[in-house]
């Protein structure tokens, strides 16, 4: 990865003055991802917080070319642009080596954009698809998505007399993408910026599709202070809720494997969306959530070649 000194000299692709919330994970993630790119970029973005807050006409925060078409189709739209680029290259009409990145939230990537994502991966376009996963439809006001953690209080899974929040565990999108047998897949977190940016560099160097699922804290939806965003992302990693790993040509590699994982409740108790779980009646849910994280961790260990010392 480029040194901090070198990174500090690279042009910011996202200009300040955008309208994202203080502490928004998406803004930090987008900045880190674009900073890691050495080539000129064409960025596509699904409808969502990142898109609506960075391109309010007549302004744009994007110093690269930027394409937004709709909610579910950033991967498909960028497929067309990438194909056009190949055609222009073939005809000698463009000299620069351009890289293509599609951003989408979990709504635009796990749910409504899932087909578009799958199609683009299968066709093999050279593009990096970034999911900034904040665990709900935050832009429309915190509705549950298939990425929402079990137990979360959202506006479509509200906690009530007979409800303890979302009933289901999140879809494992990263595993779905791995099943496409593309060259590079990873999970990252903005709390581990060096790991995140190294992964972006790697992904952009791959001659084919690549995908990085990045945890993206949302102070509004998670109900935690904006200044704690990065701390929340870090805790998600340290508790094992969000695993940092990469899958290169099918080979799993864990990138963070602490001697002792912190208990999940340390992450949960800091977020208003899980507050209702901390009652005697819901103790069993906390227990089950912990067991689920443990099970996922074991499964990843089995798939990965890890340093035995850290096991």
């Amino acid at each position: 990865m480029a040194s901090l000194k070198e990174l500090s000299t690279r042009e910011e692709i996202i200009a300040p003055g955008h309208r994202l919330c203080p502490g928004c994970g998406a803004a930090i993630v987008a900045r880190m991802v674009t900073k890691a790119a050495k080539n000129p970029l064409v960025v596509a973005c699904a409808t969502g917080c990142l898109e609506v807050s960075t391109t309010i006409y007549p302004f744009t925060s994007w110093k690269s070319s930027f394409l937004h078409v709709a909610f579910e189709n950033s991967a498909a739209s960028l497929s067309g642009a990438e194909a056009a680029y190949r055609a222009l290259k073939k005809k000698g009409k463009i000299k620069e080596d351009i890289r293509f990145i599609a951003f989408g939230g979990d709504g635009g990537t796990y749910d409504i954009g899932f087909q578009s994502l799958s199609g683009a991966l299968e066709r093999g376009h050279r593009m990096l698809i970034i999911c900034y996963d904040n665990g709900a439809y935050m832009n429309t006001g915190i509705q549950r998505s298939s990425a929402t953690p079990r137990g979360a209080d959202t506006t479509t899974t509200p906690v009530g007399k007979v409800s303890t929040g979302k009933k289901e565990y999140p879809k494992d999108l990263t595993a779905c993408v791995v099943a496409h047998n593309i060259p590079y897949v990873a999970q990252a977190s903005p709390s581990h910026y060096a790991d995140l940016m190294r992964k972006v560099e790697k992904a952009l160097d791959v001659d084919g599709p690549s995908f990085i699922n990045i945890l993206s804290p949302c102070p509004l939806g998670w109900r935690c202070p904006g200044e704690d965003s990065i701390g929340m992302a870090k805790l998600a990693v340290e508790t094992g809720f969000w695993q940092l790993y990469e899958v290169e040509n099918g080979e799993y590699k864990m990138n963070y494997s602490p001697k002792e994982r912190k208990p999940l409740r340390e992450w949960l108790e800091k977020q208003g969306r899980f507050r209702h779980l901390f009652t005697p009646a819901n103790e069993h849910i906390l227990k089950e959530l912990q067991e689920h994280v443990d099970m996922k961790w074991e499964k990843l260990l089995q798939k990965s070649c890890v340093n035995t010392e850290n096991k």
């Binding site: 064409v42 596509a44 394409l67 078409v69 709709a70 579910e72 189709n73 498909a76 739209s77 960028l78 497929s79 067309g80 642009a81 990438e82 194909a83 056009a84 680029y85 222009l88 087909q115 578009s116 799958s118 199609g119 299968e122 066709r123």
Partner: peptide
């Protein structure tokens, strides 16, 4: 480009044409 749906076909056509 052999697409996954008409929605994606038009989306890709938009991305390509805009290019």
């Amino acid at each position: 480009l052999t697409m996954d749906s008409e929605h994606s076909a038009m989306s890709a056509t938009i991305g390509a044409s805009a290019s």
